[in-house]
Amino acid sequence: METMSLKIFYSLTSIALFGIGMYALFAYAHLLRKILAVNIMFTGISLFLVATAQRSSDSNLDPIPLALVITGIVVLVSATAFAIMMVCKLCEKTGMTQLPDEDR
C-alpha cells in the first residue's frame, strides 16, 4: 500500500516537473533559461523512470530503468553542452541571448 501511494507521489511529482519545464520553456525568452527548462523536463522523466524500478514492495529493483536514466543523462548532458555552446556563439555574433521573433 505504501509503495503504491509513494509511486503515485513520484509520478505526480515527475509530471509536475515536466509541466514546469514545459511552461518555463515557452514562458521565458532567455535561451539559458530555455535550456534549463528542458533539463527540468528531462529530470521529471528520470524521476518517473526511477520510480518504476521497484515493481512491487518485496521484489528486487529492476535494473533497466536505472540504465535508461543514466543513458538519458548522458544524452542530455551532451545536448545541453552543445546548446550552451551555440548560445555563446550567438551571443558573440549578435550580442543577443534570445531568439529573434519569427517574422518571416
Binding site: 530555455k34 528542458v38 523536463m41 528531462f42 522523466i45 518517473f48 523512470l49
Partner: peptide, 23 residues
C-alpha cells in the same frame, strides 16, 4: 538553436511516452 530546442521537446515527449509504456 530553434531546431535543437524543438527537437529536445519532441525527445522529452517521446521519452515520457516510452517511460509510461515501460512502466
Amino acid at each position: 538553436i530553434r531546431y535543437l530546442l524543438t527537437s529536445l521537446v519532441g525527445a522529452a515527449l517521446f521519452l515520457f511516452g516510452v517511460a509510461i509504456l515501460y512502466a
